[in-house]
Design a protein around this nucleic acid. Structure first.
Lengths: 235, 235
DNA sequence: CGTGCAATAATGTATAGACATTAAATCGAG
DNA sequence: CTCGATTTAATGTCTATACATTATTGCACG
């Protein structure tokens, strides 16, 4: 029950911030003051405050002190898991069907000029036989040569990539878009139906690995993001 | 240039993980080994590994060692800033116009039975005179009594809340939805046009403070989420 | 052949001190 | 009064050490 002193310091300062007792911009006690207050060594205080700083709750400036962070941006953690796993986790049966496969070559590659050959895949994701997402993906074959010989008739390329290619950095764009003719026919909805569009670009070092556009049926799929204080809460 | 030793250890181990040299589930060197390798004290190694653990890249088990984290969830940081600020940051003029205001009372409050009076607001956000978002918001007057007397004819309630009410926890749902009659007429688009729907519920302690539904014009607005390694990178 | 207890190897937390770094504050010369 | 140099108060990093905690391993005993 008695949680470690460092954790306690961190939690108490955090509580004073989120309760509004310390408002944004306000200066909080120096390490020396906290050290006296808790009767502990400076390292302990420092670790607690450093953790709060890493979590973005406070900012620390030498010679000046520590301050409650200013703008309180709504910064949330968005989980975008593997579709196959997510559907399975809901107790539904996931299926992927490939609809198009093409390899292009040339200077007008989406991954930059002269990046070489590019694999383009288009397919549909099903949950219990209902089409709920259409996926267009392009993969840089220079960065991921292995993928050329993988059979995607059944397995989704996202699942394969997630397991075989480590990545560095990713950027996701989320928007709403009316279904175009192709998407509408593959998802069996009327053209113009609202879809949730998720576009993601993934890098490994400087190389862009894959670019994917996923159109989700608006009435069957949504994303949930949470913000519970300082993000990292694992046992 | 010479970054601190602890940072260097952290960065090098991290690099070995994202490069795939250490794959998920694999065990990495013990603190004692790293300590010998870098010729430094254990605290330094410990701090580096603890940071990686806090970032979710590794898991640490006593007696067993440290292991590269398993599932590699696509976990991204999504910034949902204040609309007024965001529009201003793009160099456009932001305006909010209130369209409905109502105070309800009774046991069927959206914030739970017998939470008391609820303020309902509906309005439209404009960027350079173009309507790009419709917002329906409900605020628990028991939790935020001050808001009853604020004039929202021009100022957006979200901006006011962000500045006056600290919050604890929030949950955001993102989906796509066709515009209904009211939304369509307020945004001056055809009914059924794809809109990006952002619903957010905000808590302070156990009290739910506000619930907001924002419909964005799909062609005018999107959200961007980033993932750059371990989240916390602020100077 | 288990089954429980003890040894052990790893991480978790904390201490007291040292020196480095940096930016605010102060002081001095012009 | 202003600018520049100096002081100084705060955080940043690191060390060496100590003890606590815990899950695994292996051994002894029923």
């Amino acid at each position: 029950m008695t949680l470690p002193l460092g954790e306690r310091i961190r939690a108490e300062v955090e509580a004073r911030i989120v309760s509004g007792e310390l408002s944004p911009g306000e200066r909080l006690p120096t390490e020396a003051e906290l050290m006296a207050h808790y009767a502990c060594s400076r390292m302990t205080v420092n670790k607690a405050l450093s953790a709060l700083a890493a979590a973005g709750l406070i900012e620390r400036r030498k010679r000046a002190g520590s301050f409650v962070s200013r703008p309180r941006v709504h910064s949330m953690v968005l989980d975008i898991p593997d579709l196959a796993e997510e559907i399975a986790a809901r107790g539904q049966r996931h299926q992927y069907r490939l609809r198009k496969r093409e390899i292009t070559e040339g200077p007008d590659s989406p991954f930059g000029p002269d990046r070489g050959r590019v694999l383009s895949l288009a397919g549909v994701h099903y949950a219990n036989d209902a089409a709920f997402a259409v996926e267009h993906r392009q993969v840089d074959l220079t960065a991921v040569p292995d993928i050329e010989f993988v059979d995607f008739a059944e397995q989704a390329p996202g699942s394969w990539l997630l397991r075989h290619v480590p990545w560095d950095e990713a950027e996701t764009r989320i928007a709403a878009e009316g279904a175009d003719a192709e998407v509408a026919s593959w998802m069996m909805v009327a053209p113009g139906t609202a879809t949730l569009l998720v576009e993601r670009r993934t890098w490994r070092g400087k190389d862009s690995i894959t670019f994917v556009r996923q159109h989700f049926r608006g009435d069957l799929y949504d994303l949930v993001a949470r913000f519970g204080q300082s993000g990292a809460r694992r046992s």
